[in-house]
Nucleic acid binder design. Structure first.
Length: 994
RNA sequence: GCCCGGGUGGUGAAAUCGGUAGACACGCAGGACUUAAAAUCCUGUGGCCAUUGCGGCUGUGCGGGUUCAAGUCCCGCCCCGGGUACCA
């Protein structure tokens, strides 16, 4: 009987669906295990072979855990709100819901073909009202809570309101932050109007509305979060991003900075991701130091606060620098410097983020004012410069040119004094960044090590009252508003008393038009209104501003960002259809954390940080018992594609020609070939380059991607197919070693050169798999040709899960051969089913149990590639022994079932089993079968391998040595030299030192 | 620049505690079967030398070191991939 994978797969897919084989319940009789894949965005292009890599791995693991007796939750769903569908809607008018629905159906079809064990009844889709009702509900929980720094957790906003009613707010309170929190008494609070109270509460809510500098992307018509920007451009589309002040919703994630750092120590994630999160949070310990402004024009006291991590260098301060955006700038600029400062500010504004990052110029301007050094009493000039960022620390620095590279460059340019304060001569190779050395020119600090000087100075500034210790973070509160249609509406209304507000309006504290009020939970979900125009509302307004109804109700017109829905989806899988809660307490307490989370490393800071934040808030509010969402995280590597490129001549190219091609003749070394007319462009076979004259080679540098299907396994391009695809190339010439293809004819080379091949060869290159590179391989095609089991095994066989590797179609024959070989242990072409009930021999049992042991080890280490090898070895060995025994094969197929669910199910049934193999128990390996009686010892003389010999493991060192020294080759190398030392490790090695 | 990964045959890779480097596959070469092809099977396959056999030398990015023994540990460097960047 033939191995017909298509038939087998169709058959079992149906049976499994009918029996609801993968249905999962909260079965308390079994230990639980939660395996999760990162939430896919259903793109219209469907899946390519790179996408399912992680899904296959998690599926194998989930199935393995099930065989091991666990109740496994392994769900799938879609992160279905998103920009591509909305962009498509803007272009075509097709509603994003329709586009998304189609894409999801396509995904499901592709995923089902691969044979994943998802319980589709638990599917979660973020754009469905049944789901986003709870995203909105979650938003309200955040809105109705504040972060209490005394208890160090989020709690109900009611406790804060009570506090204000009883005590008001004063600056001795731990929560107090001068910039954000106004001072008032309990009596004040009692008479504040509603909107004023709300305005104050916005300073504390976990989600709040404020006017902040945001990343505005004009092309997308929307605000972007920091992690959605790469190199100063939008991650999606690569459009320019500028800074703009806008009214926005933000998440108060900064309150969790320390707990987000601490939690990293309790989870099993890769060092690289943990490190990225630590860097993103960017905790640094330092101090705020006050410098009084000693300006002629200032009446009263004006203080510039600087943040520094290096208080030890305070005596090295020779000037201060403010961020150009600082509000102090206008206050301290002297009349005679006004022109220079204003000119500089204009320059700074003209610079985009991209320009700033690409060329770092030393620029700045003097304000004309001086500040008083708080310790020495000296005057230090105050500058502004773009290298100081408004958003970090206090937006002002004390410059120590002796110990900071940027300060030094600035000082050199503006000829400011450089005061050496640290002697690093005793530390060889220490750089300016290293916090080592002995203090000099620093008064009472002189002679101290940097470390001691820092703590001594911290004490001193606090005693003097000129500063205080301060921990600073790079982490910003996260922007939570998007000017888009295809996202969750906010459950927020504005009570408009004044004029409708513009998002770009300057902050006006008396403007009460912008005071938000939360909808009651009973009104959820607040569904997205149907609109016909998906374009932005203009002037920074969202598409929802186009809906008259929506605007009339004074609903928030922004929508939530992508991460709103994807930050908590793993909780919804636990109880996806619950209409009364985001998930029941029983389900949450049963499933708890995700035990194993698989996905790409591109979500290192975005999704993975927000999910941790949401989890911690829900934990604080007593919804969850755990405070970290993902116990173990594994990042699968990317599967790259092999692109096929053709090289062409840049002489007459649109990129600019400087050598006009005048002749119809192409020259080879020692030969030539003439075409009847001039070609529109000349392409060169990759193997023809070396037979061209040197002078023309240098122009052949450009490469163009061609559809990979046009290239045969030997790298030869089908020129006709290519021209049919790119009709504008019909007059192009294709130069091979043997001659030239031109307009369907072949013109032979006049004098034959070496290997005058007529093959036109492409150049292969490894790149990301993408539509635009024409190198996409669709899993559907692979499955049609080789079957899903073969596809699954090959994906795993390619290499370690976490490593990125190119997709090479050729190797798949290996796993295809393996499955056929396995099949032939069961079926003979002529004789048919040939499994016997004979007793297994010790040799056969050893093969089986060696395999079982290996698989168990590999599974725990997620080493799927070596598992596949182990199966191959076992099947090879059993084939060698012609073993078709029930006792062996029945257990072997169970072990293989997670990898090849279809084939093993078929064989399992053939073996006479009536229940599904996927409900079986993983066979326990028995160490007794693995005991070896002898070992093939490698014998070394002076550490070099000279012979191997099979010896009983019962022998001791002396007996082994006696046997070994009789070996001819060993004798030869020992000659008559005296034996100095013998190293003998039983079952490992014997090494004789002479 | 800084922080994480990584570097082993023609290719993907394996080597789990420092103990026979290259398992398992692909590819390639030769052979069997076949009218032929495909499929299948057998043999060989790191490099160099020897090949009549035993074998010998060399080899895990480079240079050192520790050790009876190093792909694995230590020191210094080079290259590739990812992240990040005026963060005070």
């Amino acid at each position: 009987m033939e191995y017909n994978f298509t038939e087998i797969e169709e058959k079992w897919k149906k049976v499994w669906a009918e029996k609801q084989l993968y249905k999962v319940t909260e079965d308390t009789s079994k230990p639980k295990y939660y395996v999760l894949d990162m939430f896919p965005y259903p793109s219209g292009a469907g899946l390519h072979v790179g996408h399912p890599l992680g899904y296959v791995a998690s599926d194998i693991y989930a199935r393995y855990k099930r065989l091991k007796g666990y109740n496994v939750l392994h769900p799938m769903g879609y992160d279905a709100f998103g920009l591509p569908a909305e962009q498509y809607a803007i272009e075509t008018g097709t509603h994003p819901a329709i586009t998304t629905e189609k894409a999801m159906a396509r995904y499901k079809e592709q995923l089902d073909k691969i044979g994943f064990c998802y319980d589709w009844d638990r599917k979660v889709v973020t754009c469905e009202p049944g789901y986003y009702k709870w995203t909105q509900w979650l938003f309200l929980q955040l809105y109705k809570s504040w972060y209490n720094r005394e208890t160090n957790k989020a709690e109900s906003i009611e406790t804060l309101v009570k506090r204000f009613a009883a005590f008001g707010c004063d600056n001795t309170w731990i929560q107090f932050d001068e910039e954000a929190h106004p001072v008032f008494t309990a009596a004040d609070w009692s008479i504040f109007p509603e909107h004023k109270k709300e305005l104050i509460l916005q300073n504390y809510r976990m989600v709040y509305r404020s006017s902040t500098e945001v990343n505005w992307c004009e092309a997308l018509g929307s605000v972007l979060a920091n992690d959605e920007i790469k190199d100063g451009k939008s991650e999606r589309g690569g459009y320019p991003v500028t800074k703009k002040k806008m009214r926005q919703w933000s998440l108060r994630i900064t309150e969790y900075a320390d707990r987000l750092l601490e939690g990293l120590n309790r989870i099993e994630w890769s060092d690289s991701i943990k490190e990225q999160q630590r860097n993103w949070i960017g905790r640094s310990e330092g101090a705020i130091v006050d410098f009084k402004v000693n300006a002629p024009l200032v009446n009263g006291e004006l203080v510039i606060q600087v943040f520094t991590t290096r208080v030890d260098t305070l005596f090295g301060v020779s000037f201060l620098v403010l961020a150009p955006e600082s509000e102090l700038v206008s206050l301290i600029t002297t009349d005679d410097q006004k022109a220079i400062i204003s000119e500089y500010l204009t320059y700074v504004k003209s610079r985009t983020d991209v320009e700033r990052q690409q060329e770092k110029r030393v620029t700045g301007a003097f304000t004309g004012s001086y500040a008083v050094h708080p310790v020495t009493g000296n005057d230090v000039p105050v500058y502004i410069a773009e290298y100081v960022l408004a958003g970090y620390g206090t937006g002002a620095i004390m410059a120590v040119p002796a110990d900071d590279e940027r300060d030094r460059k600035f000082a050199e340019k503006f000829q400011l004094p450089i005061i050496e304060v640290i002697d690093k001569s005793m530390y060889e190779g220490a750089t300016i960044e290293d916090k080592v050395g002995k203090m000099i020119n620093s008064d009472f600090l002189d002679g101290m090590e940097v470390k001691d000087a820092i703590s001594a100075m911290l004490d001193r500034i606090e005693t003097l009252g000129i500063g205080k210790r301060k921990v600073n973070y790079k982490l910003r509160d996260a922007s939570f508003s998007r000017q888009r249609y295809w996202g969750e509406p906010f459950p927020i209304k504005y009570k408009v008393f004044g004029v409708p507000d513009s998002p770009f309006a300057d902050e006006n504290p008396d403007d009460i038009a912008d005071i938000p009020f939360a909808l009651d939970e009973s009104l959820l979900p607040l569904e997205l209104p149907a609109v016909s125009n998906f374009k932005a509302g203009g002037d920074g307004r969202s598409p929802l501003a186009n809906s008259a109804d929506w605007v009339a109700n004074n609903y928030e017109t922004d929508t939530m960002p992508g991460y709103a829905g994807s930050s908590w989806y793993f909780l919804r899988y636990m109880d996806p259809n619950n209409a009364h809660a985001f998930a029941s307490k029983e389900a949450l307490d049963y499933w708890q954390q995700v035990d194993l989370y698989l996905g790409g490393s591109e979500h290192a800071v975005g999704h993975l940080l927000y999910s941790r934040f949401f989890t911690k808030v829900l934990h604080d509010l007593d919804f969850l018992k755990f405070d970290e969402p993902f116990k173990k995280l594994v990042n699968q590597g990317m599967i790259t594609g092999v692109s096929q490129k053709i090289l062409y001549d840049a002489h007459n190219d649109e990129l600019g020609s400087h050598v006009e091609r005048t002749s119809n003749t192409i020259f080879y070394e020692g030969s030539s070939c003439t075409l009847p007319e001039k070609a529109s462009r000349i392409y060169y076979s990759a193997d023809a380059i070396d037979c061209l004259p040197t002078y023309s080679r240098e122009f052949i540098k450009l490469a163009k991607n061609v559809q990979i299907d046009f290239v045969n396994p030997n790298g030869v391009l089908d020129i006709e197919q290519y021209i049919n695809w790119r009709i504008e190339e019909e007059n192009a010439a294709f130069v091979c070693r043997g001659g030239i293809y031109f307009k369907g004819n072949f013109y032979e080379n006049l004098n034959p050169i070496e290997n005058p091949s007529r093959d036109f060869k492409t150049k292969a290159e490894v790149e990301k798999m993408s539509k635009s590179k024409y190198n996409v391989v669709n899993p559907d095609d692979i499955i049609a040709e080789y079957g899903a089991d073969c596809f699954r095994m090959y994906e795993m066989f390619l290499g370690p899960l976490e490593q990125s590797k190119p997709w090479d179609q050729k190797g798949i024959n290996g796993t295809a051969g393996f499955l056929r070989k396995l099949w032939r242990l069961f079926y003979d072409d002529k004789a048919g089913f040939k499994v016997t009930t004979d007793d297994a021999t010790p040799a056969e049992l050893k093969i089986l149990h060696k395999l079982l042991k290996k698989i168990e080890y590999d599974m725990e280490h997620l080493s799927f590639n070596t598992s596949v090898s182990a199966f191959m070895i076992a099947i090879n060995e059993l084939t060698e022994l012609k073993c078709s025994k029930h006792a062996i094969l029945n257990e072997l197929v169970i072990a293989l079932a997670p990898f090849a669910p279809f084939t093993t199910e078929e064989l399992w049934a053939a073996l006479g089993n009536t229940e599904s193999i996927h409900l079986a128990s993983f066979p326990q390996f028995n160490e007794a079968y693995l005991v070896e009686s002898s070992f093939n010892y490698p014998v070394s003389v002076n550490g070099k391998l000279r012979a191997t010999v099979e010896l009983s493991l019962s022998l001791g060192q002396d007996e082994v040595l006696a046997q070994v020294t009789e070996l001819e080759n060993v004798k030869k190398w020992m000659e008559d030299k005296a034996v100095k030392k013998v190293i003998f490790v039983k079952g490992k090695i014997i090494n004789i030192v002479v």
